[in-house]
Structure formats: C-alpha cells, structure tokens
Design a binder for these strands. Structure first.
Length: 612
DNA sequence: CGGACAAGCTGA
DNA sequence: CAGCTTGTCCGG
C-alpha cells in the first residue's frame, strides 16, 4: 500500500486522520455490522466493523458481502482484509469503527469455510488461503451466467462411470486423453478441473473450448468462473469460485506441483476432495500412477491390460551391475549403441536426464557393483567413519561389507558430470545441448541431443527417446517418496516420447533393474510399485498410514516442548534442527498442532512434508 | 505486522 | 532522571 493512492486518490501519508470511533448505538440506526479477517501476518482472528450508512445510498453497501475485500483501520493503520460474516451481533462495549473502503467481490461463504478447514488441516493462516481464493483483479459485478448449450455426448462410457461413487481413482496411462472425462463432468453441471501445471491447463482449455463447453481458466477468468460452467486451473483453482459444483476432477493427482511449497503447504488434491465432499459432488482423481493417498480415498478403476500397455512407452533397462565401476563413467557400455542411433529417429530429440542437484552419496561395491543400501529401509547407506556404513533412516551402523558378495571395498559413484556433455558429443558425433533454466528456447529446439537435470523434461514437448543416465539417484534418494517421485519423472518422460505404437522409448541406466518403479513401467503396471510402497510405508508408519509434520526454525524447539507428547502423537528428532511430528491421521495431527500456543520467533510447520 | 506503552540500561 | 533500547501486548 505504501505510496499508493486509495480510492479517493489520497496518499496514505497526507490523508486525514481516521474517523473517530463510532458507538454502535441508537445514533447509528441501521448500521450493519460485519466481521472482517485482516490480512496481517500474525493476526489470525476477526474484528467487527460498521458498514457506513452513506454506503447504503451510493450502492457500495451492496458490495459488502461475505468474501468481499475491504480495507479497515486496525491498530491505527489501514490494512486489507475480507468480510467473513455479515449482519453479526457485535460484542458489547467495544466501539466499532466503520469500514474504510470496499474493493470488490471475493470467495463465497462455502470457499471461506473451506479455507478455514484448510488452514487448520495444514496449520496455517486462513488469510493465506483467502488470498489464493480471491480474484487477481477487482470484481464488482459477475458476468451473466454462460449459455447452457448441451455438452456434446461422448462415446466414452468409461468416463460417465467414473462419477458413480463419491470419490474414485481413475488410472489413465500417460498417453491417454482425459478430455472425455472432463466432458462427462461438464454434462453433470458446473465442474471443477485442477491440473498440476499451467501448461497442462492451457492445452486442455483450448481443446475444451473447441467443443463449445463454457470454460473459465483461473486465475484470469475468476469472475466468469463464478457465473458457471467448467472451471479449470492449476492448484489455486481448488479455491476458485464455482457456481454449483456438480463434479470435481484432479488430473495427475500424484504430481507434487499440486502441493503449495510455502506454508501452509496445502495440497490441491486433498482440498478438492474435501470441497467435493462438502458439496455432495463426485470427485475423480486421475493419474497414470495413483498415489497411496488417492488410493486410500476411494476405489480405483483400472483400464484393461491392453489399453494400459498401449498408453506406456517401451522401457529399456540397462543393467550396469556387471560393468567395471572404475572405468565406467556415466555412459555405460550398453548405452553406446542406443546413442549411436541418434538421428535415425524422427520423433524429436534424444533427451538425457541427469540430476546433479545435491551431492550423490551412492556407494557401489568395487567387486560386484551392487549398491550399498539398507535392506530394511531401502535407502542408500552413507559412509560414516572409516570402515562403517550408516542407515540414514534409523542411524544403525554396520561394517563396510557388501551384502551381495562380501566385498570390502566400495567406490563413490559421484560422477564427473562436467564431462558428460563432451562424452555424449563424442559418442553421438553431434552437438549436444546442455539445458538449464537459462538455455535459450531456440537452442533447445535446434538440438538433436539434450542433456540436463529433470528440468529438461519441461523444456521440450516431444522426444524420440528419454535416457535417465542415473535413475538410481532418483530411486534411492533419501526421501520417503523417492520411488513415487522417480515414477512421476518416468511418467513425464513417457508423455514426451509417446505411446509404444508411436515408437516411444524410455531408457534407464541402473544397478537396480528389479526396482518396483522400473518394473512397474516395464510392465505398464503401476500397481507393482503401489504394492511395494504400501507395504513399506505401513511398516515404517509413514503416510498415508500416519500423518507427518516437519517443524523447523528458531522457535521449533520451544514449539515441540509445548506440544509435549499427547495421546497418539509422537515426536521424532531433532534432525538438522527440525522435528517430525507424527499422528494417526491428518485430523489428529492438525488438532495436536493447533493445541499449541505458537511461541514467538521464526517457526515453519510443514504438514505433509515433501522431503521427509 | 507495527504502534503504544512499560520496564530496564546508561550517562552526566 | 531524561533519553534511549528492548520487550510485551494488542488491535473492533
């Protein structure tokens, strides 16, 4: 607000002092009282204000509805906020101030309630979620409801059936088309569709518009969304205005982009599930590789084996266990013929993925090439002191001996990444483009061979092959969701290369050819990964069989201290200055976190942490 | 958050 | 004891 003129063109620093408090008494007949949630960090409570009587004359009072964005004087300064209740009974003996300004319309009472629920569920402030739920520009009138032309009838019976139960999980292979599902939703009435990226949103919007279905794309078309039709957007659309929710769809529900990174770390999938439940509308969660969270929410519908197989590309697993770990660089022997054939394909460039973020700590046996990992927790062991290996999960130490062959010598697999591009160039006899966020689009488009971190998968829209030079780095990352995250990368890659009938090929170099994620893609059967993951998570008491929150920051110790050890809640850590709070489920976790009075100081509470 | 006010510290 | 810093409280 600093330096910006208000609605009357006055600048804050020269404006007249705020109006004196006005008693809500007989002197103010008809002065409506509204409840306002200020948008001020560290204030998470409401305050009551009067609607100025003069506003009844000039029509501004009409804009004061639940959700409206207003400015109020609070603690002697003007702050923004939302009307969250109208015509309330103010507390006795508190002199009320008038609203200072009304901006425009905002979220409906239903969305405000949903925002309150989410603030509790993810231990954050309601104001934060209301910001997401509010229009980016001032909205003073809603456009008239869109014409209700009949939605074209699709031939796809499966799409209709998806809405039969309150929640269902629809496993659609990577190259299947979700459009029939969205049309089937639109036939039921106002439909909310959430996809992980604006890219996916844009592509779907174009195709939907061609069918003549009224569609509003968030965040730009907030007002139009409120007037009905299909509402489509990225994760923020979970809080979009929808006139009369009749169906909800979350596309690629497994995708981590659906999760807000800043606290509160809400997830659009879970928010849409709750929203649909409240509205009594069916919700369909769609993914080629449904998350355990989704599978816990409703029954799964799977395509026929033939359809699912066709929707995945071929996977070539290049087993590197028997290669010489000393001489073998990042480009294994078996990769050579694959790369030599570059240029023969016509389906786009060859894309090589190598995640260099973080320090790889993989150790492989010098003798047999097997990776040193913890059999129980399925994570790579890290070298502690001389001759000892530690499990990063429980810290149990063991001697440095290969489980597979008894070998005593291990080799650090952290590779000389700088050389990879040159090696690729030598091998393929073509220019190789190293892609990062700054690489110009023209260079990316011109190259036959690309190499980069997983971000490279976002820089192209098709490829003849995608090669994961070191898929083990993904599969064995020391994160709870490493396998699912690796699977998500494989899905992304699968879409770039297309279905097997179009010649789509994925290539992975690995020392773990039997890993469930790879086997799942190889057989086009994501259930193989789900089974293994579910067993592991259940064993370790991890989501969705428990709920976690990571508490960090300077005030974290004090917070955890105040939390204590309530029934059904346990606290792990600290580890790197952060604690993990675990409860039986999201509700129990949220209640436990909310029961603690927040200490002063920096505190970050990450519910459903991404990297635990 | 940021203003108001109270309690504590310093220096002539 | 004025003048300033630091801490705590609270906003309609």
């Amino acid at each position: 607000m600093t330096g910006r003129a208000d609605d009357q063109g006055r600048l804050p620093f020269i404006e007249a002092p705020a109006e004196a408090p006005v008693e809500a008494s007989d002197e103010q007949p008809g002065g409506r009282v509204v409840r306002v949630l200020p948008d001020v960090a560290a204030i998470d409570r409401t305050f009551d204000y009067l609607v100025p009587v003069a506003w009844e004359e000039d029509g501004r009072a009409d804009l004061v509805r639940p959700g409206s964005q207003v400015r109020v004087v609070l603690g002697g300064r003007r702050v923004g906020g939302w009307v969250v209740d109208v015509d309330v009974e103010p507390p006795d003996g508190v002199p009320l101030r008038p609203l200072a300004h009304v901006g425009g319309l905002g979220p409906s009472p239903e969305v405000i309630d949903l925002a309150r629920w989410a603030a509790h569920r993810w231990a954050g402030r309601t104001a934060n979620l209301l910001t997401t739920a509010s229009p980016p520009n001032r909205v003073r009138v809603l456009p008239p409801p869109s014409s209700t032309e009949p939605v074209p009838k699709g031939p796809d019976r499966w799409a209709e059936g998806a809405f039969a139960s309150p929640v269902s999980v629809l496993r659609l292979p990577p190259n299947a088309d979700p459009l029939p599902l969205v049309l089937a939703g639109a036939r039921r009435g106002d439909t909310l569709v959430v996809a992980p990226t604006l890219d996916a949103v844009g592509r779907l919007a174009v195709r939907l518009r061609r069918t003549g279905v009224p569609v509003s794309v968030l965040p730009r078309e907030w007002a139009q969304a409120a007037s009905g039709g299909v509402v489509l957007g990225a994760r923020a659309a979970a809080l979009a205005p929808v006139r009369d929710l009749a169906a909800a769809i979350v596309l690629d529900e497994h995708d981590e982009s659906l999760r807000e990174e800043r606290a509160p770390t809400w997830n659009a999938r879970d928010l849409v599930l709750e929203r649909a439940r409240r509205a009594g509308a069916p919700c369909v969660l769609v993914s080629p590789c449904p998350s355990l969270e989704a599978l816990a929410a409703g029954p799964e519908t799977t395509p026929s084996r033939a359809v699912e197989r066709e929707g995945w590309p071929v996977l070539d697993i290049l087993d590197r266990r028997d290669e010489d770990p000393v001489r073998g660089g990042l480009l294994g022997e078996r990769l050579v013929p694959v790369l030599r054939s570059v240029g023969a394909g016509v389906g786009g460039p060859v894309v090589c993925v190598l995640n260099r973020r973080g320090r790889s700590r993989l150790l492989a046996c010098d003798g047999c090439g097997e990776l040193a990992r913890c059999e129980e927790h399925r994570v790579p062991l890290v070298q502690a002191e001389e001759g000892a290996l530690d499990c990063p999960v429980d810290g149990v130490r063991r001697p440095m001996v290969c489980d597979a062959c008894g070998g005593l010598r291990f080799r650090n697999l952290r590779a000389g990444v700088a050389r990879v591009r040159e090696e690729l160039e030598a091998l393929t006899a073509r220019p190789v483009c190293e892609v990062d966020a700054e690489t110009p689009a023209a260079e990316v488009a011109a190259a036959d061979v690309l190499v980069g971190t997983e971000a490279v998968l976002h820089r192209v829209d098709r490829a003849s092959q995608v090669v994961f030079l070191d898929v083990d780095q993904e599969l064995l990352a020391p994160r709870m969701r490493a396998a699912e995250q690796a699977m998500a990368l494989l899905v992304r890659a699968a879409r770039l290369v297309g279905p097997r009938s179009r010649g789509g090929r994925l290539v992975v170099q690995t020392r773990q050819p039997g890993h469930e994620a790879l086997q799942a893609v190889l057989h086009a059967d994501p259930g193989r990964l789900v089974e293994a993951e579910a067993a592991r998570r259940r064993l370790l008491g991890l989501p969705p069989y428990a709920a976690l929150a990571q508490v960090s920051g300077a005030a974290a110790a004090e917070f955890v201290d105040r939390l204590g050890a309530p029934e059904g809640v346990d606290v792990l850590g600290p580890r790197d200055g952060a604690w993990l709070v675990r409860a039986g489920g999201p509700e129990a976790l949220a209640d436990a976190l909310a029961s603690v009075e927040r200490p002063a100081g920096r505190l970050r509470i990450e519910v459903d942490p991404a990297r635990a």
